[in-house]
Computed example of a mutant assay.
Amino acid sequence: MATSLKISDELKGRVQQLARQRRRSAHWIMLEAIQQYVAREEAREDFLREALTSWADYQETGEHLTGQEVRSWLDSWGSDDEEAAPECRR
């Protein structure tokens, strides 16, 4: 699928300069930027969706962990004394 993109002369110059510095084509630079942006925004949407689902679950059940409980559990990861996941409570 061919798509054209209209950008300002200033931005075009910046892309071309970066392409020269990276020894890449301007097309490669723009494609990489778009791919990274889309991946970042998709991850942000996934995070938001997960947070809203977690909030809805909490409102329905009241089950939760404190921040300290989670930090203690995560701090134990990879150690000889790795803890099991804490139990949720109301």
Score class of each variant (00 low, 15 high):
47 F>E: 11
34 I>L: 10
75 D>C: 06
10 E>D: 13
57 D>K: 09
45 E>W: 07
80 D>R: 08
90 R>I: 04
15 V>A: 05
60 E>V: 02
50 E>V: 01
4 S>L: 02
31 L>F: 09
82 E>A: 15
67 G>K: 09
45 E>K: 15
33 A>Q: 07
19 A>V: 01
63 E>H: 07
63 E>S: 05
34 I>D: 05
5 L>P: 04
29 I>Q: 00
24 R>I: 00
30 M>N: 09
47 F>Y: 04
45 E>S: 13
22 R>H: 05
7 I>Y: 02
62 G>E: 01
81 D>F: 04
45 E>I: 10
81 D>C: 04
88 C>G: 10
61 T>I: 06
11 L>T: 12
87 E>V: 11
85 A>L: 11
49 R>V: 12
65 L>S: 02
56 A>V: 06
86 P>S: 07
16 Q>G: 03
58 Y>S: 04
71 R>A: 12
74 L>K: 08
80 D>M: 14
66 T>Y: 08
51 A>H: 13
88 C>Y: 08
17 Q>E: 15
44 R>G: 01
14 R>G: 14
70 V>P: 01
15 V>P: 00
16 Q>L: 11
46 D>H: 09
81 D>H: 09
39 A>N: 06
5 L>Y: 08
41 E>D: 09
65 L>F: 01
19 A>R: 00
7 I>F: 03
41 E>W: 02
50 E>T: 06
52 L>I: 03
73 W>L: 05
83 E>S: 10
40 R>P: 01
36 Q>T: 08
72 S>N: 15
44 R>K: 14
51 A>G: 04
30 M>F: 05
77 W>T: 14
81 D>Q: 11
83 E>D: 08
16 Q>C: 06
83 E>T: 12
70 V>R: 10
51 A>N: 09
63 E>I: 04
41 E>A: 05
15 V>S: 00
29 I>L: 05
8 S>G: 12
79 S>P: 01
31 L>P: 02
77 W>S: 11
58 Y>L: 12
16 Q>A: 14
60 E>R: 13
42 E>D: 06
63 E>N: 02
3 T>L: 11
34 I>G: 02
7 I>M: 07
47 F>N: 08
82 E>R: 11
11 L>P: 04
25 S>R: 00
60 E>S: 11
14 R>I: 07
86 P>A: 02
62 G>N: 06
56 A>R: 09
86 P>N: 15
36 Q>H: 08
18 L>F: 11
